[in-house]
Simulated scan of single mutants.
Amino acid sequence: MKHAEPYKGFSEKQTEYEDWLVGRYGEPMRKAVSHAPKLSDEQSKVATAELRDIEQSLASAMEKGIVPEARELDMLVERHHRWVSRMWPQPCTMDAYAGLADIYDHPDFARRYETLAPGFARWLPTAMKAWARRQAA
């Protein structure tokens, strides 16, 4: 698989994902997703490259046997949280970030994460939730 393949298709399917979120969480979600920042093509390329680097760093940590609850992941997960925060129209609280981990069970996300590393689709949400719990404490 080519390096960029797991990242293809998400912007093209944005409307489908937004509808899925509204179906899962209710009509208030429509307002939240309608205020997401609109990126230029160049901004989107830069953001995608940064996300790719973050996710691949996290997947590498998983492949090295680091458990998702490990504090040694804090800098990597914090970097992911900062990236998510820049993409969201509202503050990305610890509860919101942990909630984001819950939607990674969408088949497209799960397939993309499993492409990065087998087991990553379960590992990443666990790491996100563990980090968010530590920050909230």
Rank of each mutant, 00 (worst) to 15 (best):
M1E: 09
M1T: 13
K2E: 15
H3E: 15
H3Y: 15
H3K: 11
H3W: 11
A4Q: 11
A4Y: 12
Y7R: 11
G9M: 01
F10C: 04
F10K: 00
F10P: 01
E12F: 03
K13H: 14
Q14C: 09
Q14R: 15
T15Y: 00
T15E: 00
Y17K: 07
E18Q: 14
D19H: 13
D19R: 09
W20S: 08
W20Q: 05
V22E: 04
G23L: 05
R24L: 15
E27T: 13
E27V: 08
M29P: 02
M29R: 12
K31R: 15
K31T: 11
V33Q: 05
V33R: 01
V33A: 00
S34H: 01
S34D: 14
S34M: 08
A36Q: 13
A36E: 11
K38Q: 10
L39D: 00
S40E: 05
S40I: 02
D41W: 00
D41S: 10
Q43D: 10
Q43G: 07
S44K: 00
K45D: 11
K45C: 00
V46H: 01
A47P: 03
A47M: 09
T48R: 02
T48K: 00
A49M: 11
L51S: 01
L51W: 01
L51D: 00
E55Y: 07
S57F: 04
S57D: 15
S57A: 13
L58N: 01
A59F: 03
A59L: 04
A61I: 07
M62P: 07
E63T: 12
E63A: 13
E63V: 00
E63Q: 14
K64A: 14
G65F: 02
V67N: 10
L73F: 01
D74Q: 08
D74W: 05
M75N: 15
V77N: 08
V77Q: 04
V77F: 03
R82D: 15
W83C: 02
V84R: 05
S85W: 04
S85R: 10
S85V: 02
R86T: 07
R86Y: 09
R86I: 10
R86V: 02
R86M: 07
W88T: 02
W88H: 04
P89Y: 15
Q90T: 14
C92H: 06
T93K: 06
M94V: 12
A96M: 10
A98C: 08
A98D: 08
A98L: 03
L100Y: 10
A101S: 12
A101P: 02
D102N: 15
D105S: 11
P107M: 11
P107S: 12
D108V: 02
D108H: 06
F109P: 03
R111W: 05
R111H: 11
Y113S: 12
E114F: 00
A121G: 06
A121Q: 12
W123H: 01
L124E: 09
P125D: 08
P125E: 14
M128A: 04
M128F: 03
M128N: 02
K129H: 07
K129M: 05
A130W: 06
A130S: 07
A130R: 02
A130N: 09
A130G: 01
W131R: 04
W131H: 13
A132F: 07
A132L: 05
R133P: 06
Q135E: 09
